[in-house]
Design a protein around this nucleic acid. Structure first.
Lengths: 159, 159
DNA sequence: ATCGCTGCAAAAGTTTTGCAGTCGC
DNA sequence: GCGACTGCAAAACTTTTGCAGCGAT
């Protein structure tokens, strides 16, 4: 049982990124990046907390939030609210996709970015607004709930 | 100074809508609808509270939330989180537009729906997902902050 | 008269902040 | 050693919930 990864800052791929940005390299920052990297999808602050505290018990939720704010402002991480009460965070540079959030059932689907490239170009050209490439939240109704609501509408007056 | 509008349920255009949905007509519900209607854009629960309590002081924030939940589930109102901590609510049927939220400065711009119609059709066809027609939140960077960040990047190592 | 809606108050959950000590540089 | 970063604890906010009473139908 080798005590191989007592943080080992030198061996993380993120050390270089932090240095390059002039940021101090700390366990908390590396662990937050590694949590997001390992998990792949979006995580809430609480989920990140659980992941990181498993290998570095002293870490504190407030630090997670402060770190996420920093990383977001540095462009390494994106913050999205998917309507679940808590914000979701995701690593920039992951597979590009956007979020379809069903307002009825709360399900979150992912759309490939390619389907939305045209919109991004249009927004940039017409509004000077650069949409985050992996970071649109589109609210609506998913297929399942759409069918269900048809039934509801058909017999709405019964309620 | 005529005391003309002591709620006057009968005269509100929303009474019929509520009745048709089988909902009771109450001051709180009418006032929430009227607040959203009068304001035009998106409002937070707190803003709605202020607007309504000005003409019906007894109203309570909890009621606002409960009412908004109901109206949302009835499809009369949409709920969006624009990243400001509190959710924003908007009347369905207002001029169709979507929201460009700048993550740097927090500004919220509106995009005409026409620019995004193609996306909506595509999402419906490919994913069976009906995007709310006046209700996409797109996060990114606005023109102003885009320029500013170019400067920052150019001299990033100074930090 | 019934049952849904509301006010009030308290709780739950998320995010922020102040401060003193610690650690990266 | 200096100043940034962190842990701890408490506060600030937003939203939800239980319950008793009121009010729309």
């Amino acid at each position: 049982m080798a005590r191989q990864s007592n943080i080992q800052p030198k061996h993380s791929e993120f050390v270089g990124r932090f240095r390059h940005l002039g940021l101090r390299v700390t366990p908390a920052r590396l662990l937050v990046m590694e949590a997001l990297s390992a998990h792949g999808g979006h995580m809430t602050a609480e989920e990140i907390m659980q992941w990181t505290s498993a290998r570095y018990p002293a870490i504190n939720l407030a630090t997670i939030y402060r770190t996420l704010d920093l990383l977001t402002s540095m462009g390494l991480v994106t913050q999205t609210d998917l309507g679940s009460g808590a914000s979701s965070y995701e690593l920039v540079g992951d597979t590009l996709h956007h979020h379809l959030v069903c307002q009825q059932c709360g399900a979150v689907m992912e759309v490939d970015d390619a389907a939305l490239t045209l919109v991004r170009e249009r927004l940039l050209r017409d509004y000077g607004f650069r949409a985050d490439p992996g970071h649109m939240a589109i609210f609506g109704t998913c297929k399942g709930c759409l069918d269900a609501s048809h039934h509801t509408i058909a017999s709405a007056t019964q309620r």
